[in-house]
Write a protein that binds this DNA or RNA. Sequence first.
DNA 1: CGGTATCCAGGAAGATACTG
DNA 2: CAGTATCTTCCTGGATACCG
Lengths: 130, 130
Amino acid sequence: MSPAHTAVTAATEIGLPGECRAVNTVLTRIGDKWTVLIVMMLADGPRRFNELKRAIGGISQRMLTLTLRGLERDGLVTRTVFPTIPPRVDYALTDLGHSLLVPVRALGGWAFEHIPTIEAARDAFDKRDD
Amino acid sequence: MSPAHTAVTAATEIGLPGECRAVNTVLTRIGDKWTVLIVMMLADGPRRFNELKRAIGGISQRMLTLTLRGLERDGLVTRTVFPTIPPRVDYALTDLGHSLLVPVRALGGWAFEHIPTIEAARDAFDKRDD
DNA sequence: CGGTATCCAGGAAGATACTG
DNA sequence: CAGTATCTTCCTGGATACCG
């Protein structure tokens, strides 16, 4: 079952309008632990499996595979196998994948801009009550 | 510990640039099961606790409380208690919360626009191999 | 090199019951 | 009405070992 399942079922089972389901589908994929990081890594061009793994540093082989498979399934990434020895596999963003970068970067810009405010709010909140 | 913890630690521990941490913080909050749904509900004005609960329909009391607390902690939502009998609590978006709607709606728009493509890609992917 | 398979720990979320 | 407390289930993700 897809990692997007939980949040999607919520919207689906409740019977919300289609746009909400769509939003939730995407947001769940986007919100998972590694997807955005990987999409960002692929922004400048194709990368090999272990190249991504090294570049990210803290990701397990399993999660890199799973995340890339999910992106491939959604048509955001292509997987190209070169049957050489040793084997070589390139991952690259599709046009759809590149188009996703636009709103993701918008959200990133928002985050970057407001992080100080948010962290201040957190500190203030945590200091209340004691 | 905050629900945003897992995805954030990833970026933090690896030592990625600040913008990546910021992006991940926000995306994790955004990507959780109920946050966006609730923020959308509050877009048009304040709502009471059970009003939100009914409007969403599938959320447990516990998750509604937790999600609202998280939003309040991050300074995205205000919580106003009217000490009447029966008690009444209003939740409303802050300016920061409203400003978040902009990039979130952009992402929602992207999702809405590309959902047919994505679902087609999924079907095609799932049909490969058999 | 680029995976897959398996096991396991921890957190997220649901159900239920109780309270000011 | 608007929560809190507790218990339990399920899912995500990490570690490890093995395969083509």
